[in-house]
């Protein structure tokens, strides 16, 4: 039963990745930016995994872990989006998001531990 579930998941993931990456490219002129936009969909799949963990996590600590990983992934989103669009200010959004996520995870950890914020 466990083996069957593993192989079903493997087939689903491999099929999704194959459809996303090897879908025929219409023109070879701008293949780099088209390829980067497709790589971006893989990162969106990672974000859906994190949202799944935030949704069904049995304890509060699981949800905090999903939030932390999501905050680091958004930095990767902003870094990849800066290349095909040619806008340099996406990395600024990424830096600000990562700093804010770090501070909020520290505060959330103190709250889960059961202490006050000013100790």
């Amino acid at each position: 039963m466990k083996r069957l579930r593993y192989f079903l998941g493997l087939i689903a993931i491999v099929a999704t990745l194959t459809i996303v990456i090897f879908y025929p490219i219409p023109s070879l002129l701008a293949w780099q930016s088209i390829f980067l936009k497709r790589v971006f969909f893989v990162l969106i799949l990672c974000g859906l995994f994190c949202l799944w963990r935030i949704l069904i996590g049995p304890t509060a600590a699981d949800r905090a872990v999903g939030l932390d990983i999501m905050g680091i992934l958004i930095l990767g989103f902003c870094a990849i989006l800066g290349i095909p669009t040619g806008r340099d200010w996406y990395i600024d959004i990424g830096i600000a998001w990562a700093l804010q996520s770090f501070i909020s995870i520290l505060a959330l950890g103190k709250y889960l531990e059961g202490r006050r914020f000013d100790e």
Binding site: A61, D68, I72, A98, F102, I105, K110, E113
Partner: peptide, 19 residues
């Protein structure tokens, strides 16, 4: 990122164990 990501892992694991 390399300086701050292990700190969040440390804080989350310790607070999970204490809660």
């Amino acid at each position: 990122l390399i300086l701050t990501a292990p700190v969040t892992a440390h804080v989350l694991s310790r607070s999970a164990h204490k809660s």
